[in-house]
């Protein structure tokens, strides 16, 4: 299954998106996504992804013959895909206004059922280039050190040939934001170094 996830809960700071069913390969941790619909198309960073039953009162039972892989069990029981959902939580880190991409909270939430797509390299570079997006991430209770580090690694991938400059600039911005939290800064930098 590879459906386009859609916004199912929308807020200014976070939005939740869901695939139509179970998605083995959802957006990755730290990936930049965009909802190109609504008055202010919103950009955000994936902070969590979870899969499970659509109806929480119906827990998924372990099933399948010994030796069967998950793919084989799902292929034999197609209905399971229809009863499961993969959901991805996104923290806002910018929005589009006219020709500009602003690394700020969007003035309005993205529209419910808006399609959530991977941001292209140009969008990622424009929203992360000056490092301002980091302020929204480090302030979010949903972004622990691992998420911030994953977002920086993800963004660096969009700066082909200019990765070092991007990482140096981002490091300086992080140091400024976290000057009172040296332990957190060190943790994030270790995460970026991988």
């Amino acid at each position: 299954m590879s459906s386009t996830p859609r916004v199912v809960e929308a807020g200014l700071r976070t939005f939740l998106c869901a695939y139509e069913g179970y998605e083995e390969d959802p957006f990755c941790l730290g990936e930049f996504v965009v909802v190109r619909e609504g008055a202010f198309p919103a950009l955000g960073v994936v902070v969590d992804a979870a899969s499970g039953p659509e109806d929480p009162s119906r827990p998924l039972q372990a099933q399948g013959a010994a030796g069967q892989t998950a793919a084989e069990v799902l292929a034999e029981n197609q209905v399971l895909r229809l009863l499961l959902r993969t959901r991805v939580t996104v923290v806002s880190c910018g929005y589009v206004e006219g020709e500009a991409i602003r690394p700020l909270l969007p003035p309005a939430p993205p529209p419910l059922l808006g399609r959530v797509e991977a941001a292209d390299d140009g969008e990622v570079k424009r929203v992360t280039g000056d490092g301002a997006f980091l302020a929204l991430l480090v302030a979010s209770p949903l972004c622990d050190d691992a998420v911030v580090a994953a977002a920086i690694r993800s963004a660096a991938g969009a700066f082909a040939g200019e990765e070092r400059e991007f990482l140096v600039g981002t490091g300086k911005e992080l140091a400024r934001l976290l000057k009172a939290e040296p332990a957190r800064l060190a943790s994030i930098l270790r995460g970026v170094a991988g």
């Binding site: 034999e76 197609q78 209905v79 895909r81 229809l82 009863l83």
Partner: peptide, 14 residues
Amino acid sequence: FVLLPYGVGGRATL
């Protein structure tokens, strides 16, 4: 209604 295919064509439908 439910349609569940096992080893035949078609897609599971609920």
